[in-house]
Amino acid sequence: MIRKELVAASAEPLILSLLAKGESYGYAIIQEVKARSDGKLNWTDGMLYPVLHRMEHRGLIKSRWAESETGRKRKYYSLKKDGKTAMARHHEQWSLVHSVLAGLRKEQYV
């Protein structure tokens, strides 16, 4: 299981990256993160919504209420321009951390 600090730190970049593919809603976001991480990245479902609301207040994402094909009301979130910029920055920073870690790990096996 991934540590909760890392789960919290990765929430924003993951949400931004998922929304970059198109608008989505809370439940679907959680399901996709679970599926993509084979259930290892396990968010407490209810904690996603405060994060989404915070990101909306910061102008990174926007939301709209709509009905799904089943008639259920859902709040759909999508990326704003500043969200795209934030996502690019997150990718850059996480890639840097990843490359440093990968480099150090490689050196251990040489």
Partner: peptide, 23 residues
């Protein structure tokens, strides 16, 4: 259980509300 404990959620929501009010 999956949704989580309400008091923890409340604390998280308050953080974003505080930021919003401050702004």
């Amino acid at each position: 259980q999956r949704i989580g404990r309400p008091e923890l959620m409340k604390a998280e929501f308050e953080k974003s509300e505080r930021t919003f009010m401050k702004r």
